[in-house]
Design a protein around this nucleic acid. Structure first.
Length: 590
RNA sequence: GGGCUCGUAGCUUAGCGGUUUAAAGCGCCUGCCUGUCACGCAGGAGAUCGCCGGUUCAAAUCCGGUCGGGCCCGCCA
């Protein structure tokens, strides 16, 4: 009976008036009025005010010694608060507990930072991560973890209702030659050999389709050994991984789109901007927004001007066009008041993406620009017509090969949106980007390589390979994007072994190499593989967006810091000589 | 691997065109207080200014290095 409680701290109301209750929790704050002590007792469910009177001398003396974060257990009677002392901010604000007996279950050292239910501590993150078990006592984090639980349960229900089954795939898998850096796990039984933690259950889920499981999903832990970002947790993260047999892309869109709409409406304060989600081909996305994950909360499209400058005397534009490139423009309404510094900063962004510079025309009473003297009257008039620039606007130009131009102006577009506060944070602009390129020329090797998942079916299946220019082959790969983030991707898979060999061959893999590296996959496809496809939205990014947190770390119970270390447990850490010896591993320290 | 930026009581910050006692709010400790709810009032303790070196009569302050954090680029099929 020592640790028994009758209620939690968020439960009692005026209906319980007069009841004898036992509560336990943490001392959130203590207000000592000399001969009257209030304690706000806190647990995950809420806060209840408890009152100590000097008539119960023994209990009063214990309460006098209680400090923040002590764990206490009290017995007492629920009492209505006087009318004018009701606390509207608390669910339990109409009542308080008149304490008869108190036990201190655990004392607490003075915490390294203040823990208050009302506000998040402003202590720096390194310290908070070190004492994560204390930081998590904040309502902010408790709410997120509870909401995350609801979120994931909703997803499980959604898929279960639709005949999907959740299947756990191995965490000790094989290192894959494609993709991100693997986390390796040494094998004790086979010295010199390694498991790899899966970057995604991609191969297993396809094999489950071959196995006839028909519809699979998993809240799947994934591991990639890459450097973190604010929106990328180092090491491990979760994907909503699913795969279906006998489907087209349309089936995949439908199942995700409906889920995401329900999740957004149920769990977010934000409004969905476009419903149904816009579908934008990769070419169109790049051409219009200069990004394969465009932020559609603001418009600001890139404008095509190559035709206008076909015969221009302005060398920068003429050179770009003669080498098969293009000229594009970005009009910023009301941008004529950009400072010198702002224009310089935007120019730097363009240059960092490989452009020689960022030409511009400012529209005051008449157009003003360093490049005006190189342009004909017809061209100046044409720019105005195409961009619909008016007094008060600015138009930026990019000229080079197509991809460079759109990427650079896309970055400029993003920055302009920030500068001019064009972003409405109350919106989530979900969208589909489809028909990604199957291949691209690697910057490093100069050779053709897979742009994304090599197991995706090319658009048009065998007809795709009639295309002479392999960079023009499109994949059934699609992304779900929102507010400038890539949330996840999917595709119809290539279940036809001959087409798989053909796809790999273009990327420079011989049949024998494919057999060696992906033997189980190719073999599986030869034993009656159903057509199938799937996708994998990132749970973490969805949570970030839908909950509206700024850091990916907020939605994890125990996140790693930006240095990929766990500040609390100290991992990664050294291991004993004996362990290394058993694994046959020798460490060369730098 | 590269760039930017931050590091001053337990916490958050001020001071940083060189100078004597490093300042404030919160927290902590002590005392007072029977209606507070981030209670209030009074008093007190608490800092080798991340670390190492240099310049100087003198460094939290200027310079160099180093360590640690954050953000970004590369990377992330």
């Amino acid at each position: 009976m020592k640790y028994y409680r009758t209620h939690n701290c968020g439960q009692l109301s005026d209906k319980n008036n007069g009841e004898k209750v036992i509560l336990s929790g943490w001392v959130n704050s203590r207000r000592d009025h000399g001969d009257l002590i209030f304690i706000d007792l806190r647990d995950r469910f809420g806060i209840t005010q408890i009152v100590f009177n000097p008539q119960k001398r023994e209990s009063f003396n214990v309460a006098d010694k209680c400090r923040s974060e002590y764990v206490i257990r009290i017995e007492g009677e629920v009492r209505l608060r006087p009318e004018n002392m009701i606390n509207e901010e608390l669910n339990t604000g109409k009542i308080e507990i008149e304490v008869e007996k108190i036990d201190v279950l655990s004392e607490s050292k003075t915490p390294p930072f203040e823990i208050n239910d009302k506000k998040r501590t402003m202590a720096n993150e390194e310290l908070r991560l070190k004492y994560r078990f204390l930081d998590l006592r904040h309502k902010y984090y408790q709410d997120i973890l509870m909401k995350r639980n609801e979120f994931i349960r909703y997803i499980r229900d959604y898929f279960n209702k639709r005949d999907f089954i959740e299947i756990q795939t191995p965490l000790l898998a094989n290192s894959s030659p494609e993709g991100a850096r693997d986390y390796l796990v040494p094998s004790r039984l086979y010295p010199g050999k390694f498991y790899a933690l899966p970057q995604a259950p991609q191969q297993f889920k396809q094999l489950l389709m071959v196995a006839g499981m028909d519809k699979y999903f998993q809240i799947a832990p994934c591991f990639r050994d890459e450097d973190p970002r604010a929106d990328r947790h180092p090491g491990d993260f979760y994907q909503l991984d699913f795969e279906m047999s006998f489907v087209e892309r349309e089936d995949l869109y439908n199942i995700i789109e409906k889920l995401i709409i329900e999740l957004t409406e149920k769990f977010s304060d934000k409004k969905i901007m476009h419903n149904p989600f816009p579908r934008i081909s990769w070419d169109e996305a790049m051409n219009t927004y200069g990004s394969d994950k465009p932020d559609l909360r603001y418009d600001l499209p890139l404008i095509e001007l190559t035709e206008l400058f076909k015969n221009t005397n302005f060398k920068v534009f003429a050179n770009a066009i003669s080498q098969g490139g293009c000229v594009k423009a970005l009009k910023v309404t009301g941008g004529s008041n950009f400072s010198r510094k702002q224009i310089d900063d935007l120019t730097e962004i363009a240059k960092s993406e490989g452009l020689g510079g960022l030409a511009y025309i400012i529209y005051k009473d008449s157009p003003a620009s360093p490049i005006l003297k190189f342009l004909s009257d017809r061209e100046v008039e044409g720019i105005k017509n195409e961009t619909k620039a008016k007094k008060g606007d600015i138009v930026f130009f990019g000229a080079d090969n197509w991809l460079k131009v759109v990427k650079a102006l896309g970055k400029v577009r993003t920055q302009v949106a920030v500068n001019n506060k064009l972003i409405d944070n109350k919106l989530i602009a979900w969208a589909w980007i489809y028909d990604f390129p199957m291949y691209s020329i690697s910057d490093i090797t100069g050779k053709l390589d897979f742009e994304h998942n090599p197991f995706s079916m090319p658009v048009g299946e065998e007809k795709a390979f009639e295309e002479k220019d392999a960079t023009k082959i499109r994949s059934t790969q699609f992304d779900i994007v929102a507010n400038g983030y890539e949330i996840g991707s999917g595709s119809i898979r290539n279940h036809r072994p001959e087409l798989l060999y053909q796809a790999f061959e273009l990327a420079g893999y011989k049949r024998s190499e494919v057999d060696k590296k992906f033997k189980h996959m190719v073999e599986a496809m030869k034993f009656g593989a159903p057509p199938h496809g799937g996708a994998a939205p990132g749970i973490d990014r969805m949570l970030m967006l839908i909950f509206g947190t700024n850091s990916i770390r907020d939605i994890y119970a125990f996140p790693k810091a930006g240095n990929a270390q766990d500040m609390m447990t100290g991992s990664p850490s050294e291991v004993s000589e004996a362990q290394l010896k058993e694994l046959g591993i020798k460490i060369n320290k730098k």
